[in-house]
Design a protein around this nucleic acid. Structure first.
Lengths: 329, 329
DNA sequence: CTGAAAGCGCTAACAC
DNA sequence: GTGTTAGCGCTTTCAG
């Protein structure tokens, strides 16, 4: 159906090899014939066949992207920027979604391997040495994003620990006496990759300590964290702050607190993390931490392409963040 | 690097052709040799080369997906289900994002063509006969989703007109005297594909008419619709309902109304459409229309694969919807 | 500077 | 039943 390199060769009275040299601007061809070939190619509206080229070169111009899902706002934004950056660089994107299931993640990666992707950008749910070795065995560039796996791979993200610490220090200036930290993923400690969540927790603990808060916070890791909170009393004088590791949890908690008729921040303080865009429709404005997740995407693409094409790896610095002081604390 | 069909052939002492017959369960091979070949393939952990197969068969096992972006919640859910359904059927997914730019949409489709996708699922921003002819010229199956192009293509969606009509009839039972319809995309009438938005508007008008409302609603198509609304007075006795063609607009309007100190629904009634999941964090609960967008995805995949593999096209019925009566009207 | 030819790994038509 | 062969369209090496 399409016009091939042979057609052009025939029409120009040259060999396919020569056409290839012209088309790919390789040396060993006179300007004259090259110009002629390019012109004919143009006229015939020649489109190189990606499949054939991939087969011959062993490269597919495809980046595999492994994410949990697209439900979390941040992931969507991430994917948006990955798609744009990739296509702009002439790469295709193969998206696979793991649904936070470690087994499924492996299937997803296998799927990408079948496709012979040139590199992978992954928000990993697996972790540990075995997984790291598995990634190594793929022998293609891998860029980790949002969840660290090991120093063997570039990592794109913010310094979650510092960010949370800074946010918590801010909260601590508000006379809270009791602190509750909400982070259900911590229940999967040792089972799945919760690097980022661990960092945030650590940052919280450090932040409290540095602020001179002696009492340890209550850490809620229940999947049914709302249930746990519903059994807690917030009326009794001691002013409580609930710090959530993600905005989503904070929003759920907010709904719950409102349902109980508790006022935020007067009765209970509330903080999230991520500054997802729907926050603007919610009141009171949530105190949270913001960072440019779109930039994660473009950086990741740039980083993986560099490894694919140059074979070099430039260290990507931790990206900037900012504490957003809302009205909820 | 991988083990090929030749390696297996050599090891089994048969020809590549025979291995192919075994691997693809084609007739013309004895059970005995087939079993032996399959076993060896298994042992050697043979993985067929997708590129080579595609080149030979002229099929890539890839579905191209064209969406506006992933920002709108519904799109994310859609993509989630498309990814899952595709992978489950052994297909790859190539996602391209148009950002609602008609020119970019063409580039996106070209990108998919380079990739030689077997079929396309598209939420179109282009429209009209020229575009329809363009799609025809691709000579691969196309499934339209959420925005109708023509009867040449399967269409997945709800009956937006009826849905909006039903919702508006519900609103009309609430003694409103003045109606405002908010739908910025209508400003692009004739320029981009706003089929769904047109349907919703028509449904609104019909709903009002059937409810015996004489006065025409004020239709706001400004990009700066908040600006337009800010210039309107809602205090003066006549009870107003603001009907938005999407939840997103409704949420923006809600923010604005709250900012003005207006009470919803006491001072102004407000309605959205889509029932995006963030509504649960917003109060008052928005009156809206719900439908299973995930099902759009799985239906679309099923539909495009049927066309790719069987060459047949089964009419997909309009999917069900439901008016959600909230506290905002 | 250009042509010829041998692949990339798999499929499919035609012999035997 | 099984082997042989000629591609799919492009790249790349080796002659000339």
């Amino acid at each position: 159906m399409g016009v091939t390199i042979k057609d052009i060769a025939a029409l120009c009275g040259v060999s396919p090899g020569t056409v290839d040299r012209a088309l790919n601007h390789r040396p060993g061809i006179s300007e004259k014939t090259k110009a002629r070939i390019l012109q004919v190619a143009e006229q015939m509206n020649y489109q190189p066949d990606h499949m054939a080229r991939s087969l011959a070169k062993g490269r597919t111009m495809t980046i595999g992207v492994v994410l949990f899902d697209l439900y979390n706002r941040s992931f969507s934004q991430l994917m948006n920027s990955i798609e744009a950056a990739s296509r702009q660089q002439g790469y295709f994107v193969d998206l696979v979604l793991t649904n936070k299931d470690p087994e499924n993640e492996k299937k997803c990666i296998e799927h990408l391997l079948l496709r012979k992707v040139d590199g992978i950008i992954i928000f990993a749910i697996n972790q540990g040495e075995a997984f790291n070795d598995y990634l190594k065995s793929l022998s293609i560039p891998v860029v980790t994003i949002c969840n660290y796996v090991s120093d063997d791979w570039s990592y794109i993200g913010i310094d979650d620990r510092e960010a949370m610490k800074e946010a918590v220090r801010y909260i601590c200036g508000k006379q809270y006496e009791r602190f509750i930290y909400v982070c259900p993923p911590l229940a999967y400690r040792g089972k799945t990759n919760i690097y980022t969540q661990e960092e945030r927790l650590a940052g919280c603990l450090e932040g409290l300590k540095e602020s001179g808060i002696e009492a340890q916070p209550t850490v809620i890791t229940d999947k049914d964290y709302i249930g746990s909170i519903s059994r807690m009393d917030f009326g009794s004088g001691t002013k409580t702050a609930i710090i959530c590791s993600c905005d989503i949890y904070a929003l759920e908690v907010m709904n719950h607190l409102k349902g109980r008729g508790l006022r935020i921040p007067d009765d209970v303080g509330l903080m999230g993390f991520d500054n997802i865009d729907v926050l603007k429709y919610v009141s009171p404005a949530l105190t949270t931490v913001e960072y440019a997740v779109e930039e994660f995407g473009s950086r990741a693409v740039q980083c993986v392409i560099e490894q694919i094409e140059q074979g070099t790896r430039t260290l990507v610095p931790r990206l900037p963040y900012q504490v957003i002081t809302g009205d909820s604390t």
